[in-house]
Simulated scan of single mutants.
Amino acid sequence: MVQIDDVRRAAERLRGRVRRTPTMRALVPTPDGEVEVVLKLEQTQLSGTFKDRGMVNAAVRAHEEGWLPAAGLVISSGGNAGIALALAGAALGVPVTVTTAQDAPAAKVQRIRSLGATVLNHFPDHPTSNAEADTLAARTGALRLHAFDHPDVVAGAGTLLLEAVEQEPELTSVLVSVGGGGLMAGTALSAQETGVRAVAVEPVGAPTLHAALAAGEPVDVAVDTIAKDSLGANRLGAGPWEICRGAELQSVLVTDEAIITAQHYLWDTYRLLVEPSAACPVAATMTGAYRVGAGELPLFVLCGANVTSPF
């Protein structure tokens, strides 16, 4: 299982290879009045999402330690991890193949291709795409990476909170959108190290962690949400679960309507254009699904911006 030392090593590995994204203070309306929060602007990563941290960490570690094959890298992705891995592969000069479902956003597929990666996107759904990535890696000898269920990906994701605490030492909590659980697991590790309380936010239509916490293990969930291209995993990853299960996480749910409202608020008030997945923490606070306590300074991770227009 990933340890905090793995996160620290990832932070050193990523220095100069991914962006140190800015933070900004913001006011968010809630049922109890406005609250001050800190926004972590991960949408300013080169790929547009936090995925740079995990993909670059995994690819560079394999390269540095001599087990990155000439056949390159293969991943199944809804789009964002594929973009980030394509960037990592281009920087290392190795081929990247991305499998994805046929309903993946065209803009994300085009971005992956524009970075020189091969995209196979004729699969009917994510499970089929995932299985094809396994088959392709076995046939070609390419290194199979996973968008969220891989130790180096989790460790890379964990660097986000360590960085944020350096920037904003007064932070007391962090709210993270959850799909497959890689970002949440990495954040949970760093939260335990820094004393920051971690909170998971999930769409009602894709409650992977919420369902796992209720069942005591990862279980399949039906995915029906506006955020499905980023938070579309139908089950929490096994690796992330091993970390999350012992982290005493709170999980709150938000509706698609609340997510859209939060997207508009971020655009109208701060001119921040983010994906539905990135707006989930703001949605939780605006609706009261999560209530900011007295003296609390929460971090909201705005995790993605691969959208083509402001709604």
Rank of each mutant, 00 (worst) to 15 (best):
T99N: 09
D32P: 00
V174D: 10
R291D: 08
V98A: 14
E34D: 06
L41S: 09
T135A: 14
E36D: 02
A200P: 04
T140R: 02
L68C: 13
Q110G: 03
E168M: 08
I226K: 00
D6E: 11
A58E: 02
L41N: 08
L160I: 07
L213V: 06
L171V: 09
T308C: 08
G82P: 15
A222D: 11
S129N: 01
E257A: 07
V199S: 15
G141T: 08
T269R: 07
S177Y: 01
G78V: 12
T118I: 05
L14E: 14
L73M: 07
G237H: 08
V18L: 02
N130L: 03
F311W: 14
R20Q: 13
V219Q: 15
Y270V: 04
R15E: 15
M24I: 09
S129Y: 00
W267K: 07
A206M: 01
A11K: 09
Q43H: 14
L175Y: 04
I259K: 00
T308Y: 09
R113N: 04
D103F: 05
A71L: 08
G246E: 06
A26N: 06
G156P: 01
D149Q: 06
A289L: 10
T187A: 07
V7Q: 15
H126F: 10
L171A: 12
L161I: 05
G93R: 11
